[in-house]
Amino acid sequence: MSAARADLAGTSREFLEMPEGLELDTPRVEDGAAIWRIARDSKVLDLNSSYSYLLWCRDFAGTSVVARDGRGEPVGFVTGYIRPERPETLVVWQVAVDHGQRGRGLAGALLDGLAARVTERLGVRRVETTITPDNTASNRLFTSFAERHGAAVDRDVLFDGGLFPDGGHQPEVLYRIGPLADAAAPR
């Protein structure tokens, strides 16, 4: 286990294995541009401004994670934050994996690594995210995450599509996952 993985996971914690040749790490400001490109190239995420990804890497690095290839370049990420009024809840904002790294279990490994870190360091016991009804991959990702962690999943529409000013946006369904049986030791 690399120093970065040991740091994220704690001393004796385990989670889904990172695909060979990749390392789990905390994002740095200089990763913002690469994270923005991965989000843009995903073609499914709502793309935020490049500035917001720089801020995310500065202000929410402790609740986010990147996967780095052998050259140290980001090839996947999870951005998240702690809900201010619910400090035991991690809100996962975005998950994306570079096209060349898809199909290797990287998104699940990123989520497990982040969950291990925020559970141990911040006392997180629940995860929330929103997913549009047509995003089958994210539905599977978060449903399997909940299963690995022995957690229930509750789903409710958080934002109806008509609330979005740009029109044509599907509803955002809130997934409430928890309590996590043991975020650091998936089944």
Rank of each mutant, 00 (worst) to 15 (best):
T26F: 09
R40N: 12
E30D: 15
P19Q: 00
M18H: 06
R40Y: 13
Y51I: 03
I35T: 03
V29M: 13
S49M: 01
P19H: 02
L16V: 09
W36Q: 10
I35L: 13
I38L: 03
K43L: 14
V44L: 15
W36S: 02
D41I: 06
G21H: 02
V29I: 13
V44E: 15
Y51E: 12
S42V: 08
L24C: 05
V44H: 14
L47C: 04
L45A: 12
R28A: 10
L16Q: 11
E23C: 14
V44S: 14
G21N: 00
L47Y: 02
K43S: 13
P19S: 00
R28V: 04
I35E: 03
S49Q: 10
G32N: 10
L24Y: 04
L47D: 08
V29N: 10
D25T: 09
L16Y: 11
K43N: 13
D31L: 00
E20I: 10
A34D: 08
V29E: 14
T26D: 02
D41E: 13
L45W: 06
E17S: 15
N48D: 11
M18P: 05
A39D: 00
A34E: 14
A33D: 14
R28Y: 09
S49F: 07
V29G: 09
L22N: 06
V44T: 14
G32H: 10
L45S: 06
M18L: 15
E23D: 15
A39N: 07
E17D: 15
P27N: 01
I38E: 03
N48C: 07
S52R: 04
D31A: 01
S49I: 06
R40F: 12
M18K: 02
Y53H: 05
S49A: 09
Y51N: 05
R40A: 09
W36N: 02
L47E: 00
I38T: 08
A39Q: 01
N48K: 14
N48G: 08
G32V: 05
S50K: 10
E17T: 15
P27G: 08
Y51F: 06
V29A: 14
N48Y: 15
L16I: 09
R37G: 03
V44Y: 15
E30G: 08
Y51K: 07
R28I: 10
E30N: 12
E30Q: 13
L22K: 03
P19R: 05
Y53A: 00
D31W: 01
S49H: 09
G21E: 10
G21P: 04
V44M: 15
L22H: 08
L47H: 11
L45P: 06
L24F: 11
V44Q: 13
P19V: 08
R28F: 03
D41M: 07
I35Y: 03
Y51S: 00
S42C: 08
E17G: 15
P27M: 02
L22S: 09
L16E: 11
S52C: 02
E23H: 12
D41R: 01
L16H: 11
K43Y: 12
N48I: 02
P27F: 04
D31P: 01
V29C: 11
S50D: 12
E17Q: 15
I38C: 09
D41L: 07
L22E: 10
E20Y: 11
L16F: 12
K43A: 14
E30M: 05
S52I: 04
Y53M: 07
A33T: 12
G32K: 04
D25Q: 06
S50V: 13
R28M: 07
R28C: 03
S52T: 05
Y51P: 05
